[in-house]
Amino acid sequence: MHDSADVPKIRVERVTKSFEERRRKSRHPLAVSDRGEVVTILDDVSLDVREGELVMLVGHSGCGKSTLLNVIAGFERPTSGRVLIDGVEVAGPDPRRMFVFQENSLFPWLTVAENVALGLESAGPGERATVPELLQLVGLSGFGDYYPHQISGGMGRLAELARALAMNPDILFMDEPFAALDFMTRCLMREEVLNLMALLGKTVLFITHDLDEAVQLGDRIVILSDRPARIQQVFEIPDPHPRDVSAGELGRIRRRAYQEMGVNPVL
């Protein structure tokens, strides 16, 4: 057993991910070479995440942040480097670490309650919540018998969160979970996530390209550079919630983060 004091929950160790673009021989007359081009997506990324920390990964679209999360979650293998969780190298996806996807991944042939129940069924032994408890936790009591296509996008995200929580994971990976929602719903979702995390104390890696969301939610913001992604800047945000992201020190961090991303914070 490792001492939790010196072993980080997640350690990303010099991870590089590249692949050869497998193109068939180009029919284009001007093509010089028919050999695939090596594309590097992640370039020597190292990162430690403490237990219970909520780390926001921010970067431009297509910069490789989803790839980084997929590598950490075990869905993809790094080309070099390794990822350690609780000191053990990640070999594949694991029910103790649940991924909440960008798109709706609720099983549409099951009702909301059945989706959550499938999570509970699949969870290992140990103390388990019940389906009604989980639905209540995410504020979906009374919607258990609806099919996913019958509820709104925001409720779908919450149901998916409930299904992920049913597995009682240590870590949640969230890949732009609220990107497809409208602005108001997204703000409500942030509140839900904060309340849930205050209650459950999971370690969370959260991808977003919304800087306000990052400053609002994160204990730490990691800004990734454009492809190949490297860690460009890290902001620690020790401030307790509730936070007013435009005032004082937080406002300053927010403005600096905007500038790091190459966007003007004041228009």
Binding site: A73, F75, P93, D94, P95, R97, M98, F99, F101, E103, S105, F107, W109, L110, L118, G119, S122, M167
Partner: peptide, 23 residues
Amino acid sequence: LYVRAARNMGLQGSRLVLRVVLP
């Protein structure tokens, strides 16, 4: 996405077929 979600939940073998692939 459904296959990934199922894998993440640790579903495999006959349970994967009956709960995800068949439906």
